[in-house]
Design a protein around this nucleic acid. Structure first.
Lengths: 220, 220
DNA sequence: ATTACTAGTAAGCGAGTAT
DNA sequence: TATACTCGCTTACTAGTAA
């Protein structure tokens, strides 16, 4: 979708062309878009050709209505602006499944963690973590995790050693409820570790190198 | 604001560049925008020149943050999408003050109307109506008034004649509370008639041909 | 009145490449 | 590695005007 066509579609929507036919001449539209009559006419032809709008010609002006395909595009755009300004209680990532070092299983089976997961997240994790490497471009968003208060899993002792504290956020991976765990004493990483009551690889039917969609939720 | 610069700004915002500096190379941005590295670089130069973003150059990539001017633009855009999809409980017009035929005063002083205005709108109107001719382009939105349920003022009889029913909507004119009255038995008009507890021409300090901003509210 | 074609001009694009 | 310049090519724009 060319940016100028999107703007044109938005302008038509603002004039009420989503649910109704609106009566507008190319010169009026041109004035709204601050361009020439010829350009407005061309935009309408392009939108019509792309099946974004329907047109009817009267004796004088034309009747224009945005059809479902055009409305979809506007709604997607709206969603993006909501993501920027409204839905700051969540952040969206894309990533690729990678294999862990096997240590996820060791940690997620420690009683000291398990009881806290049960209490604070409401589930006992399936042993092991699913590791997802965040897409290069989305790594900028990782710092958002530092700015939001997490669900804190406290450090604890066994007779052998100390297990460090962990931060958690509720999350979805390909639409399935899960949580991410961020060890407090670890440096910045591009890999997120997921825990879930179920075996995610099986539940989601995913393997290494598969792409997944991730949503992370912040507490209010 | 050129449409493609707006799109670029939106993409940067989606990557988190509103509150944070994000680390992004021109080639990464190019991939997001589905264009070439050179074009992405040029867009960033243009945005910088227009003071929409701030840039810092590290050894490798650049750090980019959207500044307040850029954020304003995005917020205006967001507002427009909200107007399209969310704030359908209101509609916005621009118009020009015109003189009525003097009959507004006759009608707004009829007891049969006054008591209903008091009861259903909560105020006794200042005698007379303020007439506003709706901007040509905004006339498309007038039909929205037909699709929403109004505050109904019933018809009534005096010993001399029958006064017809009227539909009302709460409204604002240049930010001041008022209401519009639409006679049921009248054809489609490009002129809206306002009533208000106060003398609007004085209160708003407006004369014929002055432009006014109108918001009309629908019940819930 | 309109819409929209033609044609000449301006703006935008990206491969190559300097830095 | 980056960013961003030059320059040839393409796309977009609008004045004039036909329909």
């Amino acid at each position: 979708m060319k940016p100028y066509l999107l703007q044109t579609l938005k302008e038509l929507a603002l004039l009420g062309a989503i649910k109704n036919k609106i009566e507008i001449s190319s010169i009026e539209l041109a004035k709204q878009l601050d361009t020439s009559q010829q350009t407005a006419s061309r935009y309408l032809l392009e939108l019509d050709k792309k099946n974004m709008i329907s047109r009817e010609f009267g004796i004088k002006k034309q009747l224009i209505q945005i059809n479902s395909q055009g409305e979809d595009i506007l709604q997607k755009e709206h969603l993006q602006y909501q993501q920027i300004f409204q839905l700051t209680n969540r952040v969206v990532f894309k990533g690729r499944v990678v294999s862990g070092m096997g240590e996820g299983r060791y940690y997620t089976e420690q009683d000291g963690y398990v009881t806290q997961f049960k209490q604070k997240l409401g589930f006992i994790p399936y042993p092991g973590t699913l590791n997802v490497e965040i897409e290069y471009i989305d790594r900028n968003k990782l710092r958002l995790l530092k700015n939001h208060s997490a669900i804190d899993i406290d450090e604890f002792q066994t007779k052998n050693r100390t297990f460090g504290g962990v931060k958690c956020f509720r999350a979805e991976i390909n639409g399935i409820d899960a949580a991410i765990v961020l060890p407090l004493r670890s440096h910045y990483s591009n890999i997120l570790e997921f825990i879930s009551p179920e075996f995610l690889r099986e539940k989601l039917n995913i393997n290494n190198d598969d792409f997944v969609n991730i949503v992370i939720f912040f507490n209010e």
